[in-house]
Amino acid sequence: MIKIGYLLSYDYEMLLTSVKQLYNYADKIVIAVDSERKTWSGNTFVIPDSFFSEIKIFDKKKKIQFYFDKFYLPSLTPMECESRERNLVLKKMGKGWKIQLDVDEYIYDFKKVSQYLKKYWYLNLFPTLTPICFQGKLITLFRELPDGYLYIENDEKFPFITNQTKNIHTRRNDEIRNHFLNIKVIHQSWARSEEQIHLKIKNWGHRDDFDTESYFQFWKTLNSSNYEQFQDIHPIVPNIWNFLKFMPSSSIDDFIKKYSLKNDQIPIDLPVKKIFKTAVKKIIKQ
């Protein structure tokens, strides 16, 4: 089975854009919401009842399950709260291929991802012997402008699919085999209104990792005329975001459509023999 896990908070409005990309090819979708409506920083957010009604109407095949729990603990840092919540969601999803997404991450042409994972269904028979984490490639949207989007397209990888029920840190598990899947995931990230960005940087897991207010002021200066002047702009590891690109677009759906037409999803096959050799060695040791 292919299961999707989302963490839902103040940016709930982006969820349907993501879910629409994969709904027809997922078996189960788990959406985690803090029962006290607290962010990882302990701030309160509101999700209107109309949102849940909209999801219910959309979910015609009854694949979506909401998971309410207390995900903010004042004794933990925002990043520790994030890691804890992601692991709770993994356990909630159970056995199978588990795809861990944020609501602003969009996997276009998800049918190819589904076909790829089903080809390796047998790796879920005894997942403790064949543990694996798949990494994708992020296409980071950095600024929404009146005439389109500034975005970053390089080799930034991130883990998001596993057959395990526990991560080591956020979505990462460096203690098991990691395989670059070469699937592109559009991340709306910083391409939001000024109000939404201010809310994000006060509440996300990276709240304490850099001077968020100073970076916010820099972000506001960018436009479709001056973006080429700036390089190495990632707030924590500068060269990860080496330079910006611009695509004229009328909406996020328009950007996804235009980008997908020029960039096919071409997943890279797994080294199956190596995986089974490792599994055999584990059995022998036991």
Rank of each mutant, 00 (worst) to 15 (best):
I2D: 00
K3R: 13
I4S: 01
Y10G: 00
D11H: 10
Y12T: 05
Y12N: 10
L16S: 09
V19R: 00
K20F: 02
Y25F: 13
K28F: 10
D34L: 08
R37Q: 13
K38E: 03
T39P: 02
G42Q: 03
N43H: 10
F45I: 05
I55S: 06
K56D: 15
F58P: 01
K63G: 05
K63W: 02
Y67F: 15
D69E: 12
F71M: 11
Y72H: 14
S75R: 09
M79P: 01
E82L: 07
E82W: 01
E85K: 15
E85T: 13
E85I: 10
R86K: 15
L88G: 06
L88W: 07
M93G: 02
M93D: 02
W97Y: 14
I99K: 05
Q100Y: 01
E105T: 06
D109Q: 11
K111V: 10
S114Q: 07
K118G: 04
Y120P: 05
W121Q: 15
Y122E: 15
L123C: 11
N124H: 08
P127F: 14
T130A: 07
I132F: 06
C133R: 11
G136S: 10
K137L: 14
L138C: 07
E144A: 11
L145V: 11
L145D: 10
Y149V: 08
Y149I: 07
L150P: 01
I152Y: 04
I152F: 08
I161N: 07
T162Q: 08
N163C: 08
Q164K: 15
T165W: 06
N167C: 12
H169L: 12
D174P: 10
F180P: 01
N182H: 06
K184A: 04
K184L: 08
V185P: 01
H187G: 01
Q188S: 05
W190M: 10
R192P: 03
S193W: 08
K200H: 12
N203T: 14
G205T: 12
G205F: 13
D208A: 14
E213A: 11
S214G: 09
Y215A: 08
F216A: 13
F216Q: 08
K220I: 11
S224G: 03
N226W: 02
I233H: 00
H234I: 01
H234D: 15
P238Y: 04
N239E: 07
S249L: 00
I252P: 05
K257C: 08
K258D: 05
L261H: 04
N263A: 04
I268S: 09
P271S: 12
P271Q: 04
K273R: 12
K273N: 03
K274V: 06
T278E: 15
V280F: 12
K281W: 02
K281N: 13
K282A: 09
